[in-house]
């Protein structure tokens, strides 16, 4: 179940270099949405919509937040939209993360893969640790949001300008050695996801990863958004928009 509509933007902030945080009033979407799902966002003048993860959902206020980085011309166009204007979205799409009750979680975000971690981290509050990694301090986003949700935050930067210097996988390994969670969630570049998946396997922890692929329809009709998955030893081409974007890491073929 999803909706398509033009919904008003009620807040917009630049939260890092080229990174925007947009709050949309769309009660019917917020009502349906779950952490890890995404929206197909129209960019005026461009034929295809841009997939952006739903970062945060406020069912009471009827809002969702999209946090995105300007990567090319389409996201640049979307970033020109301001408070009071409408944004054309199809949402919520895809399957979202599974939230385990009474469990401990580690959420791992790499760069612009960090926003989709907010929704799921909020499901766990104090029982979640959020390990996020960025190239440099200027683009280290959402740390206050995770802290406000009660989560423990571990910030990593490649250049050491904020938090600890190094990769998220190193911080994850230390956590796994010290205190194994029940589940790991991850979103970020595919090398990072591969590293996280390997650690999860090594330490026998369930792990869900959110994947990216170029999309057209976003709803499962056109079959363009494939990724390689393995189930019962057989290799399949699954569709990120419908079968994902969240997959069990054991099912993803990272090669």
């Amino acid at each position: 179940m999803y909706k398509q509509g033009n919904y008003p933007i009620i807040a917009k902030r630049a939260i890092g270099r080229g990174v925007f945080d947009v709050t949309i009033h769309c009660p019917e979407v917020a009502e349906l949405a779950r952490a890890g799902q995404f929206a197909q966002v129209a960019a005026e003048g461009f034929f295809l919509r841009r997939p952006i993860s739903i970062c945060d959902i406020d069912k009471e206020r009827g809002t969702i937040r999209l946090v995105f980085e300007v990567r090319g011309k389409g996201t640049d166009k979307i970033s020109e939209l301001n408070v009071g204007q409408n944004i054309d979205i199809i949402a919520p799409l895809g399957n979202g993360f599974t939230c385990l009750e009474g469990a401990k979680a580690v959420c791992v975000g790499g760069g612009i893969g960090t926003p989709p971690m907010l929704g799921i981290a909020k499901c766990y509050g104090r029982d979640a640790e959020v390990i996020s990694g960025f190239r440099t301090a200027g683009i280290a986003i959402l740390q206050e949001d995770f802290a406000a949700a009660g989560c423990k935050t571990t910030l990593c930067t490649d250049d050491g300008t904020a938090g600890r210097k190094g990769f998220v996988t190193e911080a994850l390994k230390e956590r796994l050695q010290a205190d194994k969670p029940d589940i790991i969630y991850a979103c970020g570049p595919s090398v990072m996801l591969n590293g996280v998946a390997k650690l999860a396997k090594e330490y026998c922890v369930k792990c869900e990863v959110s994947l990216e692929q170029r999309m057209a329809c976003g709803v499962g009709a056109c079959l363009v958004c494939v990724c390689r998955t393995v189930k019962d030893g057989e290799s399949y081409l699954s569709h990120v928009c419908k079968d994902g974007p969240v997959f069990d890491s054991e099912e993803v073929d990272f090669t």
């Binding site: 461009f46 034929f47 295809l48 389409g74 692929q213 170029r214 999309m215 057209a216 056109c222 079959l223 363009v224 958004c225 494939v226 990724c227 390689r228 399949y236 081409l237």
Partner: peptide
């Protein structure tokens, strides 16, 4: 199964 991805490019 069809072809490997990416299978779409904007024009």
């Amino acid at each position: 199964q069809g072809n490997e991805g990416p299978r779409v490019a904007e024009t």
